[in-house]
């Protein structure tokens, strides 16, 4: 009897947990009919926000991969005094409240900021432009990629890197032929998390870039603006973002399968190949 009660309590707990997690997502799709959601997507606000989101996210990801990957490789493979300080600095924006990141960006790159006069001299006005969105996304989302990339590169057997060098390959060829392919699963996972965070970025962007339709208004910002004026549009954008998030999550799961086998442990790939 006692065991039955215990089992029932466990079942109830799991049910509540799942219901709580899934219900908000389900509600987005059921609050108004799917027809209304699809209709709302043709709203020019949505169209503009999709363009801004695509443009800023892609540029930010390119910047993160381009600058983050070599940084991660350096931090993963070198041991020097102050290394842990650098790693902490890289991780800092990850724990920083996004609004604080936004203020920081304003006083660093804004018109009255630290580098403001320099940018003014060069006739560059970053604040409240699409570039500001890119900077906000990059600052807030990049730690998710870099952290994961450091871990992925640290997991590459240093003997394989050393072997590459003794086989006549220079550091660049070693990086592209050995380190990068061996770390690619971890890098992809980090990039998927980073992408999800980028698309969801809100606080830093609205502080630093504002929410100007067609210029700086991303999908996430559009949800917030339409929430007051046109609730159905907000719902439609939200539904769209749920699907995008699901796709990213799927990519994250698949990236684990993309990891090439490590020499020391037999891998599922070896099994797959031999069948």
């Amino acid at each position: 009897m006692q065991r039955l009660l215990l089992g029932f309590a466990l079942f109830l707990a799991i049910l509540v947990a799942f219901a709580f997690l899934v219900l908000p997502v389900v509600a987005i799709f059921t609050h108004v009919g799917p027809g209304t959601l699809v209709d709302q997507l043709s709203n020019p606000v949505v169209h503009d926000a999709v363009i801004v989101t695509l443009k800023t996210t892609l540029v930010a990801q390119a910047a993160i991969l381009l600058f983050g990957t070599p940084t991660a490789w350096f931090l993963a493979t070198r041991r020097f005094p102050g290394r842990s300080v650098l790693v902490t600095l890289v991780e800092l924006p990850f724990v920083l409240p996004p609004a604080v990141a936004g203020i920081g960006l304003l006083v660093a790159f804004g018109r009255v900021g630290l580098l403001g006069s320099t940018f003014e001299f060069l006739h560059i006005d970053i604040a409240f432009s699409w570039v500001a969105v890119v900077l906000a996304i990059t600052l807030v989302a990049s730690p998710l990629y870099v952290r994961q990339a450091i871990a992925a590169f640290e997991a590459v057997d240093p003997n394989l890197v050393a072997a590459s060098r003794t086989l006549g390959a220079g550091p660049v060829r070693t990086f592209f032929r050995v380190a990068l392919p061996l770390a690619r699963g971890g890098l992809a996972a980090g990039e998927a998390l980073c992408l999800a965070r980028s698309i969801g970025e809100f606080g830093a962007t609205i502080m630093f870039a504002g929410s100007l339709q067609g210029r700086t208004q991303t999908l996430t910002l559009a949800v917030y603006q339409e929430f007051d004026s046109n609730f159905d549009t907000a719902l439609a954008i939200s539904a769209l973002l749920v699907l995008v998030s699901l796709a990213i999550l799927l990519a994250l799961k698949l990236s684990a399968l993309w990891q090439p086998s490590r020499q020391s442990s037999p891998s599922r790939f070896a099994l797959l190949r031999s069948t």
Binding site: R165, G170, S261, Q263, S267
Partner: peptide, 20 residues
């Protein structure tokens, strides 16, 4: 000279074959 600049063939203990 770096390893790639030395004419040396090193066979590692666990062989260090590239798994990919």
């Amino acid at each position: 000279l770096h390893p790639d600049e030395r004419r040396v063939g090193l066979v590692f203990q666990e062989y260090a074959l590239f798994p990919h």
